[in-house]
Design a protein around this nucleic acid. Structure first.
Ligand SMILES: [Mn+2]
Ligand SMILES: [Mn+2]
Ligand SMILES: [Zn+2]
Ligand SMILES: [Zn+2]
Lengths: 124, 124
DNA sequence: AGCCGACACTGGACATTGTCCAAGTCGCAT
DNA sequence: ATGCGACTTGGACAATGTCCAGTGTCGGCT
């Protein structure tokens, strides 16, 4: 556990946290000015390999890093400002995919992304 | 309708087609050798604006372009080789998201991505 | 304490994907 | 044929991510 890794872990602490690598780097630099981009990428990659952090692709730009890896969940994304919330829908979408729609695949996982407008963007 | 746009439209014809912009460009060049990347991007952008083609983000690399824009559907992706199928699950995942899990958002859309192994990758 | 080796970190080069722009080209109406 | 406007082109640039060689750090050994 180096100072750099500790800072990355600190930046990723909290609920509904879904930062891009560059956002992690910017916040890490605020705490440890000379931390490099490469170290942030390396540390994020290690955390993902360890299963401590998830990569999520809620937008078509950068990957986002999600420290909420221990409880399965899905995402609710504001189409306007990008704000992301963790959500826990009821039911199991896997059971909604009939065998005839599986094309012989062995289906093991499902990601659900809800899109809409957050309260701020709805008001504006 | 120019020769360039016709070629892009031809490349995007078919079922279960989900090509990246570079793949579209490569196939377009095979039919019209001097078509430029910029024109492919421009044409794809116009088709998306017209609602004729969808952008899908099934992987965390490039956007993919999907000519199946007229019937709502979701995607089944092979985690190994990336093969993508269009699927039509039963039920409506929107109804699985209770008000208490909406954080005040106005939810209007949901994307579902199933992941697993295709028949070829299951065998291998 | 001083040395050594393993590992981590750094800065920068490079790759991929996508956007933007100035200039050239093309097709169509006149 | 001419002129105009739209389209296309090639390249510069931006954003994201990967890779590598060199440097730094730290614990363990003598
Ligand atoms: Mn999350
Ligand atoms: Mn599709
Ligand atoms: Zn918003
Ligand atoms: Zn496969």
């Amino acid at each position: 556990m180096t100072a750099q890794r500790r800072v990355v872990a600190e930046v990723l602490d909290g609920d509904h946290v879904h930062l891009t690598a560059d956002e992690v780097h910017a916040r890490a630099v605020a705490k440890l000015p000379e931390i490099s981009r490469a170290t942030v990428y390396n540390t994020l990659g290690e955390l993902v390999s360890l299963g401590e952090v998830l990569e999520v692709a809620t937008d078509k730009r950068a990957k986002r890093y999600d420290p909420n890896a221990h409880r399965p969940h899905h995402h609710l994304v504001c189409a306007q400002c990008g704000a992301i919330k963790d959500v826990h829908p009821t039911g199991n979408p896997l059971s909604d995919l009939p065998t005839s729609e599986r094309f012989g695949y062995t289906v093991s996982d499902v990601e659900v992304t809800y899109r809409g407008l957050c309260p701020d963007c709805t008001a504006a």
